[in-house]
């Protein structure tokens, strides 16, 4: 069910997710945003939610679901990949 969240789907053992963590946390702090962090490899409910957004996330990931992936429940926009910048994240968050 959509709750109008900004969601970060991540994996506990994904190196790019680990590298992005400080970027996400700074973005939240500097812009007063809340990004819901959902781990997908150790929580099947989170994985299922991610699959339910596959139509938007899959193309953003280049054809297959992957992490790190960000999904905006308000706009339906997704961005995905290990080289996401703070600027791209802010643009995604603001729709």
């Amino acid at each position: 069910m959509s709750e109008n969240r900004l969601i970060w789907f991540h994996g506990r053992e994904c190196p790019h997710c680990r590298q992005l963590r400080p970027v996400v946390e700074r973005l939240e702090k500097d812009n007063g945003l809340t990004i819901t962090q959902l781990e997908v490899w150790h929580d099947e409910e989170n994985a299922e939610l991610m699959r339910s957004y596959a139509q938007a996330i899959t193309p953003a990931c280049g054809g297959e679901l992957g992490v790190p992936a960000f999904y905006n429940e308000v706009t339906g926009k997704a961005i995905c990949g290990g080289r996401i910048t703070a600027e791209q994240l802010l643009e995604w968050a603001k729709g």
């Binding site: 789907f9 994996g11 053992e13 994904c14 790019h16 490899w41 150790h42 699959r51 297959e64 679901l65």
Partner: peptide, 21 residues
């Protein structure tokens, strides 16, 4: 560590940066 976690929980040494369908 990730691929071994996935083997233990999902059955195969899946990539920890993708997601199973």
């Amino acid at each position: 560590q990730g691929v071994l976690e996935n083997r233990n929980t999902k059955g195969q040494r899946y990539c920890p940066c993708r997601i199973t369908s």
